[in-house]
């Protein structure tokens, strides 16, 4: 699975959580919060993506993230076996 595939999964879950979001316009350098996701939305987006990707990342690692790029990298690295808590 490529990094782009992981990004597509994250964006799909974000679009489900936020009204009126055009997936094509998502800028990965921005945060989920900047797209209007609140704390529960973020849990749903991140957990939903992890479930779909069949990976599990400790909450402590997730708390360090600042933007979508960081999340995608963490999920992708974990999926590839390079990250933590596969």
């Amino acid at each position: 699975m490529t990094r782009e595939d992981v990004l597509a999964v994250v964006v799909k879950h974000l679009a489900n959580a936020v009204d009126g979001l055009d997936p094509a316009t998502v800028d990965p350098t921005r945060s989920l919060k900047e797209y209007g996701a609140n704390s529960l939305d973020i849990v749903e987006v991140v957990s939903g993506a992890m479930r779909e990707l069949k990976v599990k990342v400790p909450r402590a690692e997730l708390n360090k993230l600042t933007n979508i790029d960081g999340l995608v990298s963490l999920l992708h690295d974990t999926k590839s076996g390079a990250g933590v808590g596969a």
Binding site: L40, V43, S47, G48, R59
Partner: peptide
């Protein structure tokens, strides 16, 4: 807690 949230939903 996150696992529980998803299981509930």
């Amino acid at each position: 807690a996150d696992e529980s949230l998803l299981s509930y939903l």
